[in-house]
Design a protein around this nucleic acid. Structure first.
Length: 271
DNA sequence: ACATCTACCTGGAGGC
DNA sequence: TGCCTCCAGGTAGATG
């Protein structure tokens, strides 16, 4: 599933194909994603020039002179560039056709993703107004994390997955970063010392950075890929390893549910 | 203000 | 082979 590193990798793969290009047309085959794809999108984008691509949280932002195309990959979304006409399969819901003949195509079997339009500053969009800091930027500091955790009783795993606290930390990397910092997922956020907040912040960053590096090397080509290569698999310390031996101490990895989501941890290495 | 729950969706795995 | 059930999960919005 696309977490922040996959979105970042997708952005870097798409950018050289899209930046500065002119939109010829927009094709909406199925508007029923998380929210309906705006039906005025073709009229809004025909003839418009792509000014830049950015990522905020797990959203991809494609900027035009008069507004921003917002894309989210949800659980199962992927984007690729086609250089020749290709029949869309049943899960390929949206195309951005360029004047140079290339096409950016969105595939999203589970349709948790989104394609939206916003005219104006991205910060003024309701989805973006209350987002927390980017985990890979300097705005995400130990001091911020420490203060934010004070008096919070929510388990730390759920806390770091809250996009109002910090964006882009999904289930996989929350589990991994907590293992790497030696913090068990059930621990109340407010119980973390300043030193442990510092450690956690650094491990969130390192985990995401490493995944981006790995993604960059494993997903090098966005052009005419078969779309089946999927997202890069990594070696995980704990994620999806229930009952397997901890790679650090050998103890079996535990699996629990926290607010309907699976958490994995080592009860020896994490406390 | 905070914590928890619900809803959305479909492919894939496992059981029979 | 086919049918059924369960699970995965991002995140806004509702509810307690």
């Amino acid at each position: 599933m696309p977490e922040l590193p996959e979105v970042e990798t997708t952005l870097r793969g798409l950018e050289p194909h899209l930046d500065g290009q002119v939109v010829a047309d927009v094709i909406i085959r199925n508007a029923k994603l998380r929210w309906p794809i705006p039906d005025m999108l073709p009229a809004l984008l025909q003839g418009q020039t792509i000014r830049n691509l950015q990522r905020r949280a797990k959203y991809l932002l494609i900027a035009f002179d008069h507004g921003i195309l917002i894309l989210h990959l949800g659980m199962s979304g992927s984007l690729r560039i086609l250089t020749s006409p290709t029949i869309a399969d049943k899960h390929e819901h949206f195309d951005l056709q360029l004047a140079n003949g290339k096409v950016m195509r969105l595939r999203d079997p589970r349709r948790f993703g989104a394609v939206l339009w916003h005219s104006g500053e991205i910060k003024s969009h309701t989805l973006f107004a209350k987002l927390g800091p980017e985990p890979l930027l300097d705005e995400f500091t130990t001091e911020y994390l420490y203060k934010a955790t004070r008096k919070r009783r929510i388990p730390i795993k759920q806390f770091i997955m809250d996009s109002h606290v910090v964006v882009g930390v999904g289930n996989i990397y929350a589990n991994e970063a907590l293992f790497r910092s030696g913090i068990k997922p059930q621990l109340a956020a407010g119980k973390l010392s300043r030193a442990r907040c510092d450690n956690l912040l650094n491990e969130i960053r390192a985990t995401l950075h490493e995944a981006i590096l790995q993604g960059g090397s494993s997903l090098r080509d966005y052009v005419d890929s078969d779309g089946k290569q999927g997202y890069f698999q990594q070696h995980y310390w704990v994620y999806a390893r229930a009952n397997e031996a901890c790679k650090r101490c050998g103890n079996p990895i535990k699996q629990i549910k926290q607010s309907q989501r699976s958490s994995f941890y080592c009860s020896v290495c994490q406390h």
